[in-house]
């Protein structure tokens, strides 16, 4: 296998990290709506925690994207 093809396959595999981020953000969003439905008066604090949570969950997908970009445009 030539290195270029291997790099392309590697880039595609790196994007699979999106799976974890999708699941994580999905769970966080679901629980946030549950929490706001239960306690609408605390929605400000819940949204703050939610924003941090999705930002951290999303980081893995971003690392995958960066790795695949590095492989594509090296």
């Amino acid at each position: 296998m030539n290195p270029q093809a291997a790099a392309l396959i590697g880039a595609a595999i790196a994007v699979v990290t999106g799976l974890g981020a999708g699941i994580g953000i999905g769970i966080a969003t679901g629980k946030t709506s549950e929490a706001i439905a239960r306690q609408p008066e605390a929605s400000g604090k819940i949204q703050g925690a939610f924003l941090i949570g999705i930002a951290l969950a999303e980081a893995t997908a971003i690392y995958g994207l960066v790795v695949s970009l590095l492989l594509l445009f090296k």
Binding site: A55, E58, A59, I62, Y63, L65, V66, L69
Partner: peptide, 13 residues
């Protein structure tokens, strides 16, 4: 590193 990569990766993506 995570702050920089998060913003960069999201916008570039």
């Amino acid at each position: 590193v995570s702050l920089a990569l998060r913003l960069f990766g999201n916008i570039l993506g």
